[in-house]
Amino acid sequence: MNLTLKVWRQKNGQTEGHFETYPARDIIEDMSFLEMLDVVNEGLISSGKDPIAFDSDCREGICGMCSLVINGIPHGGHAGTATCQLHMRRFKDGETITIEPWRAKAFPIIKDVATNRSAFDRIIQAGGFVSVNTGGTPDGNALPISKEVSDRAMDAAACIGCGACVAACKNASAMLFVAAKVSHLNLLPQGEPEKHRRALAMVTQMDKEGFGSCTVTGSCEAVCPKEIKLTFIAKLNRDFGVAALLGK
């Protein structure tokens, strides 16, 4: 099939960006969206032009590196699908596709559609862990954990940290990301001792990074490639609320 791409091009963080239009010819249905971009880039290189800079690595939907807003929707709007797992059979011959970067103050653009998401790392550094050192830990089976609790923690832990939730939110809030990590750890007995401190520290860092506030519209849940549930935000609010009350 043949498509028209309208792609955001921006030389670096200091310059202004703009859309450019490129044809994408002879695209095969079995290609992934990023393979389609590879084809376009091969063409650009061959004609001596600068290829489109975009992030990707595992191309299996798990590393969280890929990050495109496709036709206005982060990752293109197919349930549980990251950009790298989106295949061209989802598009129609002759279609025009717009491709933009994540847009959020806390995710500055590096080049074209690649952004800097280090703010997420700093939120984890603030408290997204269990404070145990290597060695001296009890036997893995010493602490039974009910399957339901463990499964719920795993549902939250499935977050790949891609930032689509932020990109989808009109306030560029990072609540779903923070809620996922807080819930993963706070639901488990291992995370219990630091539960309040964790919620406070991570939310404080989130605010410091310039992410907006959450008004629970659910746009984040709708685009999450791992289908992380909005209910985790309720859990975060509860843990944060108690922590604030306790003045931890």
Binding site: V130, T137, G140, N141, P144, K147, S150, M154, L188, Q190
Partner: peptide, 22 residues
């Protein structure tokens, strides 16, 4: 064997049986 203990302590949500064990 130490690796599993370490990871459990960090909060790695390994699959569990209904009895709560790994």
């Amino acid at each position: 064997v130490n690796i599993i203990d370490q990871c459990v302590a960090q909060g790695v949500p390994f699959a569990r049986e209904y009895g709560g064990l790994l």
